[in-house]
């Protein structure tokens, strides 16, 4: 890239990042205080805004030609059936089959792997409740000592239980997810047998790091890391949760006005 182009690119990036940087600088202030014990409650945002969006798939396994989950033969076959509109296998909107683009719930773990934005965590003695911006979705992580259900009916967001490994590390196990959902925005597949492990590590008062491992032996020959210590920043408790919804009528309007025109044959 030439120097003027580099300067232009830097200026554009800087301008784009400005509102997020401003939020980060004013959210907490001061030196980081020690973490509270066994407490994740608060309103959180990805410390670097783009880290939560993950348009090309899981942050630590993007579909960029350099990363590839360890597919089994069956898993690769499932992946080829999925036609995403992002990543190295992206197709035109007319050809894609992303269930979330029909406004299906994107489900779990995709809720963590695409459009992860402002997220509130609420705790009571028996539950850790996670409130997400995208879709105004909530998840309940049971902490009352129950086990994951055996042979559960699949649900969009599965079934989750959590426990504190130590005073600052909360481990969540999830199973029973609906196989119609994709893992991420790049169309990575899974079966109903998938198990997902999330680790929330409270580094200090102002920061949690989220890691997530996918384990689905039918689809992947070994567990793989989708998120590796994604930093989340504590923002003021009075932060109003934004709204970001998939509306079928808005989606239809977008397709009618815009996307459908891009699918016409090229003009001479």
């Amino acid at each position: 890239m030439s120097e003027p182009s580099a300067v232009l690119a830097l200026a554009v990036i800087t301008a784009w990042m400005h509102p997020f940087v401003a939020v980060a600088q004013t959210a907490t202030g001061g030196a980081a205080a020690p973490p509270p014990v066994r407490d994740l409650s608060g309103v959180w945002q990805p410390a670097n805004a783009l880290d939560g969006i993950q348009p090309n798939g899981a942050r630590n396994m993007p579909a960029d030609g350099k990363h590839e989950p360890p597919y089994t033969a069956f898993g690769l076959e499932l992946f080829k059936r999925n036609k995403p509109s992002n990543g190295t296998t992206e197709v035109n909107p007319a050809e894609e089959n992303d269930p979330a683009h029909a406004c299906d719930p994107q489900g779990f773990p995709r809720e963590n792997l695409f459009e992860l934005r402002t997220t509130q965590i609420v705790q009571n003695p028996n539950q850790t409740i996670i409130l997400y911006t995208y879709g105004r979705i909530y998840r309940i992580v049971w902490t009352d000592g129950r086990a994951l259900p055996k042979d559960p009916d699949p649900r969009w967001f599965g079934y989750s239980i959590g426990r504190w490994r130590d005073d600052y590390t909360f481990v969540v196990e999830t199973s029973g997810t609906d196989a119609r959902t994709w893992l991420d925005n790049a169309g990575r597949p899974h079966t109903e047998d998938m198990r997902v492990e999330e680790i929330f590590h409270r580094v200090n008062r102002d920061r949690v790091e989220l890691s997530m491992t996918i384990d689905d032996p039918k689809v992947y020959s070994k567990p793989w890391l989708a998120l590796d210590n994604l930093p989340m920043r504590l923002v003021p408790a009075n932060t109003d949760m934004p709204e970001m919804m998939c509306s079928p009528s808005e989606l239809a309007e977008y397709n009618k006005r815009h996307a459908s025109k891009g699918q016409n044959p090229s003009k001479p």
């Binding site: 182009s5 969006i53 990543g87 035109n92 909107p93 459009e115 891009g262």
Partner: peptide, 20 residues
């Protein structure tokens, strides 16, 4: 024609850049 590397996606695009 900016000599930029092809942008794989727009920012946050639900719908990728295949049309563009």
């Amino acid at each position: 024609a900016l000599g930029l590397a092809a942008a794989p996606t727009g920012l946050f695009a639900h719908h990728g850049s295949a049309l563009y």
